[in-house]
Simulated assay, not measured.
Amino acid sequence: MAEAKRPVIPDVRLPNHGGDWTAEDKARVAAEIGAACRSGGYFFLYHHGIDADLLSAVYEETRRFYRLPAAEKIKYNSSERSQFLGYRGLGREKSTAHAGAEACEQYRIGNTKGALGAPVAADFYHAPFEKGACLFKHLVDLGDRVLSACADDLGLPAADFDSSMNSPML
C-alpha cells in the first residue's frame, strides 16, 4: 500500500527582514502569499524581522507570571471593564464543546476601543507582559503587511483591509 504524500507547507520569505520593500519585492511576496493561500491556506513566514531574543523574553515573562501565586495573578483579572484584557483563571472559561469549564489559565493583552474606564488603564493589564505587549505590536504590524500583500494579490488597493483591522483582538 502506498503511503499518502504529506503536503509541503510553502515558505514565504520577506525581503529585508520586514524593512522597506521595492515594487518587485511587494509583487513577489504578494504572489507567493496568494499562491500559498489558494493551495493549502497556510505558509511559513521567514525574515519577518521579529527578534529571537524578544521571543525568548516573552516565554520567560510568561513562565514568571504563571508561577505566581493565584492571589497575585487574580489582581489582573479580566472583566468587561478591562475590555477583557488580563487574567482568566482555571475554570473561568466555559466550553461550547462540553458542559464543563476549561482546565487552563489565560492572559489576554491587546488593543482596546479607546481608553479604559478610570482608574483602570490598558497599561495596567500589560504590565506583567511588557515584552509580550511589544511582541503583540510587532505581530500587528507584520499582520498588516501580510494583509496588504493579500490585497495586492487580489488586485485590491493595498490598504483595502485596513478598515477591518483598526482594532484587532477586541
Results as ranks from 00 to 15, higher is better:
Leu85Thr: 01
Ala122Ile: 01
Pro69Gly: 11
Asp160Asn: 06
Met1Ser: 15
Val29Tyr: 07
Asp20Pro: 06
Ser78Lys: 15
Asp144Thr: 10
Leu139Pro: 01
Cys104Gln: 13
Glu60Thr: 08
Glu102Cys: 06
His138Gln: 12
Cys150His: 00
Arg145Asn: 09
Arg108Asn: 08
Cys134Glu: 11
Lys5Arg: 15
Asn166Tyr: 05
Leu154Ser: 02
Cys104Phe: 05
Phe84Ser: 10
Ala57Glu: 13
Asn111Ala: 11
Lys94Tyr: 03
Pro168Asn: 04
Ala158Cys: 11
Ala149His: 10
Ala57Thr: 08
Lys5Leu: 15
Arg28Ala: 09
Lys94Val: 12
Cys134Thr: 10
Pro119Asn: 02
Leu68His: 06
Thr112Arg: 01
Thr62Met: 11
Lys113Gln: 09
Ala35Met: 05
Cys150Trp: 09
Leu156Trp: 12
Tyr107Asn: 07
Ala2Thr: 13
Gly91Cys: 11
Leu85Arg: 15
Cys150Met: 15
Asp51Leu: 10
Tyr66Leu: 01
Gln83Ser: 04
Phe124Ile: 03
Gly91Ile: 09
Asn111Trp: 05
Ala57Ser: 08
Gly40Thr: 14
Glu105His: 09
Cys104Trp: 04
Asp141Ile: 03
Gly117Ala: 13
Ser79Asn: 04
Glu105Ile: 07
Lys26Trp: 14
Arg38Ala: 15
Thr96Met: 08
Ile74Ser: 11
Ser82Arg: 01
Gly19Trp: 02
Leu116Val: 00
Glu72His: 07
Thr96Lys: 15
Gly86Ser: 10
Lys73Trp: 10
Ser79Tyr: 00
Ser164Pro: 02
Ser78Tyr: 01
